[in-house]
Computed example of a mutant assay.
Amino acid sequence: MLNKDCHHDCNQSYCPFAQDNNNANRYVCLKCGTEREINRYSSGFGSFLMLLLSLFIAFQLLVTYERQNNQPQQESPISSQS
Rank of each mutant, 00 (worst) to 15 (best):
N69H: 06
F56A: 13
A58K: 03
Q68H: 12
L53V: 02
L55Q: 03
Q68T: 07
F45Q: 07
L52T: 09
E35F: 04
S42H: 05
L52K: 01
T34D: 00
T64M: 10
R40I: 15
Q68M: 14
S54R: 04
N70T: 14
L53C: 10
Q73E: 14
V63Y: 04
F45L: 11
P72K: 05
F59N: 01
T34S: 03
L55Y: 04
P72F: 08
E75Y: 07
T34V: 03
E75H: 04
A58T: 08
Q60S: 06
L62K: 02
T64R: 03
E37V: 15
S42L: 12
T34G: 00
G46L: 07
L51G: 02
L53Y: 01
Q60K: 05
I38W: 09
E75W: 03
L55D: 03
G46V: 15
L53F: 06
A58W: 01
E37S: 09
T64Q: 10
L55T: 12
N39R: 09
N69T: 13
A58M: 00
E75S: 11
V63F: 05
G44R: 02
E37Q: 08
F45R: 01
S54F: 11
Q73M: 13
V63R: 04
Q60C: 07
S47Q: 04
G44E: 04
S43K: 02
M50D: 06
N39H: 11
G46R: 01
I38G: 10
R40N: 12
E75P: 10
G44C: 13
Y41K: 06
P72Y: 10
L49A: 02
F48K: 02
V63G: 00
L51K: 09
I57W: 01
R67M: 11
V63E: 10
G46A: 08
T34N: 01
N70H: 07
R67H: 08
R40D: 14
Q74K: 02
G44W: 01
Q73Y: 10
R40F: 13
E37I: 14
G33R: 00
L52G: 07
I38P: 04
L62E: 08
Y65S: 05
N69C: 14
L61P: 06
F48R: 01
R67K: 04
N39S: 12
S43Q: 06
E35Y: 08
G46P: 05
G46C: 06
Q68C: 10
L52P: 06
E75K: 08
L55K: 00
P72W: 10
E37G: 12
F45N: 04
N70S: 13
F45H: 01
A58N: 08
E66P: 03
F45A: 10
Q74V: 13
E35T: 13
N39Y: 15
Q68I: 15
S47N: 05
